[in-house]
Structures are given as C-alpha cells and as structure tokens.
Simulated scan of single mutants.
Amino acid sequence: MNPATPAPLDAAASRAGRPHDARRDMKVTDVDVWVVNLPLVNPFTSSFETKTGETRTVVRIRTDEGVEGWGETMWGRPVAAIVRSMAADLIGTSPFALEGFHRKQHMVPFFYGYLGYAAIAAIDVACWDAMGKATQQSVTDLLGGAVRDEVPITALVTRADAPGSTASALPAALAEHARRVVTEGGFEAVKLKGTKDAAGDVAILRALREALPDVNLRVDPNAAWSVPDSIRAGIALEELDLEYLEDPCVGIEGMSQVKAKVRIPLCTNMCVVRFEDFAPAMRLNAVDVIHGDVYKWGGIAATKALAAHCETFGLGMNLHSGGELGIATAAHLAVVSSTPVLSRAIDSMYYLHADDIIEPLHLENGRLRVPTGPGLGVSVDEDKLRHYAAVNEREGDLTG
C-alpha cells in the first residue's frame, strides 16, 4: 500500500469512528543483542589510547508485522547489558512510540552516563530503521528530506601513521602520509589527533599546513593540554588558518579562558555533552562549534534538537565519531543529509575499518553517499555479524 493512501477501516475502528492504523498497532516482539569486535586497518592513537579495532553493540528489533529494525552503538558488553535490561519495556510497544520509550528510560543516562545514552541510542536507531521500513521511507525522508546526497568525511591523522619516526622526523613523516591520503582519497578536511605534547602537535600542524595548503585543517588533543599550553599553542597556530581547535583543555571554564585569548574557533565534544551543558557554555562564551553524536546524545531526535540549538545561538555543528560501523554510520548520514547546519566534513572512522557487518557504504572522493532505501537503507550480513560476535566472545571487549 502506498503510505500516502488512507488505511482501510476495520470493523472495530469503524464503529469507533477512527481509522485502523497498522503502523500504530505494530508491536515489537523480539530484541536481539550482539557485541562485535572488528579490526582497524592500522592502529589509531589519541592522547589517551592506541586501539587496533572497535567493539560495538548491535541491536535488532522484530515486530509482529515481520518488520526488522537494526541499530548499532558505542562500546560493548556493559552497553549490551543495559540494552537487554530495557528490552522488556520495548516488547509489546510500537517502534513508532519513541517519545514514550525515551520518557520511560529518561533516568538511564543519570545512572549510567555515556553508557546509558549509548544503550538508548541503539534501540532508538533500530526503531527509526523499523519505522522507515514499515512506511517504505528512508530515515532521511522521515527526518525532513535530503538537503545533500553525499557527506564529506575527514581524513584522520595520528602518530601511529608514522611508526618508528623520531621526534624530529615525525612532522615531515605525518605530513607526507596526510598528503598521500588526501591525494588518493579526495578528502577536503584533515584532523590531527593530538597528544599531551602541545609543542609537538604545533610542529606537526605546521608541516601538515605546508604540505596541504588548501585543506580544512583541525586538531583534537582530547583535552590533554593545560589552559596555559592551550593559549600558547592556540596563538602559535593562528597563522595556519585552522577550521577549528577541538577540546584543547578540560571543561567549559577552561575553554572559555582559551577562547578569550585565541582567535581560532573552538569546538567541543567533551565539555558540551548534554543539554544541561548548553546554557553554561553560552553564558561563558566557551565554544563556537559543537560536535553532536547520535550515540553519545541518546538518539536521532536528540541530535536533531542539538542542531536546532546550535542554529538558534549561531553556533556551528559537526558530528563526532566513536568508531561507527555501517549501521551507525548510515544513521549519522541520515541526520547529516537532513540537517542544513551540518555542512562540514564530519568525523568518521568508517574508512579505517578492515571490514563491516553490512554491504559496504559507497565512499568516493572523500564522500559517503547517503543510502536511499527504506529505513537506514543498509543490508546486514548476518554471517559476518555472527563471525565478529564470536570474536568478541573469545577475546572480550577491546580496550585499546
């Protein structure tokens, strides 16, 4: 049936004077959860870890109408346990009843923090996928329709990309690596994952800028620098025309002090991570760009609401990457495709994974094509899902 065609009246509904709505009457019957480990192509180093793979939690909901919805979220067994604990509240309800689900689970993040947001997001995304399939609409269209069909992603550079380099040789080695990645992949933006060594990061960024004069250049130390080091490094970096400086130091107060002294836009995904953080950050004039994330903010609607906040207050917005595989990346693409303010190259580690549990997304010229099929528009390879779930059962969650 065409979704635009009114549903027929059943006898009881007709007597009650209301149309029968099969979508509203559809009920979730099963919630399945897997934890998977997938390898990265190369090690990935930040200021606090080096990792060789990703651990992700994958969720499938099934309905009495035969509709399946898939979700995927950050982290592994602790998140999977929270998802399983919420499953009983989902079974017997409609995947369209998301507001009721979120209201019932609103204390989960209070008790579990990021893990709670991630668990809620797994189910949230699975419900959006099911809603799209039930109505034969893409999630992008359910969110308002596409304003872009392709999404540029950022080339990510870490010290692990130049193994064995001495400190003095490291800037040139990473600059050559980045130049090669940009040339081969067609990326428009490059982000350096910084370390506690602010002066070393400055030297690397100078080499990156010299090698790549036209790319949008960023750095993210993950709050590893002190406020004085952030100010010193920020002033030194002003001549490089960075797109933004992401989380150089800890906290809204520290970011505010840096922003008062440095003429580079400041971005965060560490000090504005809940809606409760938004007003203090605005009052202290602490940030210019906020990184959203469906899995850190607790779902698709929350991420869209964050975009509305950013537009209202004249801020930029981008998306953080926590190592999304194909299902989670498809949800991010739907959000970006339907959200005008998300106009920058997003963070995505998708291209760094050695494999996936879906038919691969299309990546060309540094851009991911937004899937257009019903729901998230992706097809899960259940053999690969079982294979990588077995890897997690043997090895446990990857921690670095």
Rank of each mutant, 00 (worst) to 15 (best):
3 P>E: 03
3 P>G: 02
7 A>E: 15
14 S>W: 15
16 A>N: 12
20 H>R: 12
26 M>P: 04
27 K>N: 07
27 K>D: 10
32 D>N: 11
33 V>S: 04
37 N>G: 01
38 L>C: 05
40 L>D: 00
40 L>K: 00
41 V>A: 12
46 S>M: 10
52 T>Q: 13
54 E>W: 11
58 V>H: 01
63 T>M: 07
63 T>Q: 02
69 G>I: 00
71 G>S: 00
73 T>R: 01
73 T>S: 07
78 P>E: 04
86 M>T: 06
91 I>M: 13
92 G>T: 01
100 G>R: 12
103 R>L: 13
103 R>C: 13
106 H>E: 15
112 Y>A: 15
114 Y>W: 12
118 A>W: 06
121 A>S: 09
123 I>P: 05
123 I>H: 03
125 V>G: 00
131 M>G: 11
131 M>E: 07
138 S>Q: 01
142 L>P: 08
143 L>K: 01
151 V>T: 02
152 P>M: 00
153 I>T: 08
159 R>Y: 14
160 A>M: 01
161 D>M: 09
163 P>G: 01
166 T>D: 12
168 S>K: 15
171 P>H: 06
178 A>H: 08
181 V>D: 02
186 G>Q: 06
196 K>C: 11
201 D>R: 11
204 I>E: 10
209 R>M: 03
210 E>H: 14
212 L>T: 04
216 N>K: 14
223 A>K: 11
223 A>M: 15
224 A>W: 02
225 W>P: 01
227 V>Y: 00
232 R>T: 14
237 L>D: 08
239 E>D: 15
242 L>A: 03
246 E>V: 05
246 E>D: 09
249 C>N: 04
249 C>E: 02
250 V>L: 13
254 G>W: 03
258 V>N: 02
260 A>M: 09
261 K>A: 15
266 L>T: 03
266 L>P: 04
268 T>H: 07
282 M>Q: 13
284 L>G: 10
286 A>H: 05
288 D>T: 01
296 K>A: 15
297 W>F: 11
306 L>Q: 11
306 L>R: 05
313 F>T: 14
316 G>I: 00
319 L>G: 05
323 G>Y: 06
324 E>N: 09
325 L>G: 13
328 A>R: 03
329 T>W: 06
329 T>A: 13
330 A>S: 11
331 A>V: 04
333 L>Y: 03
333 L>S: 02
333 L>H: 01
334 A>Y: 09
339 T>V: 04
341 V>G: 10
341 V>D: 08
343 S>A: 14
352 L>A: 14
358 I>Q: 01
360 P>H: 03
368 L>P: 07
371 P>Y: 01
382 E>H: 15
383 D>S: 13
383 D>P: 04
392 N>W: 13
392 N>R: 09
394 R>H: 10
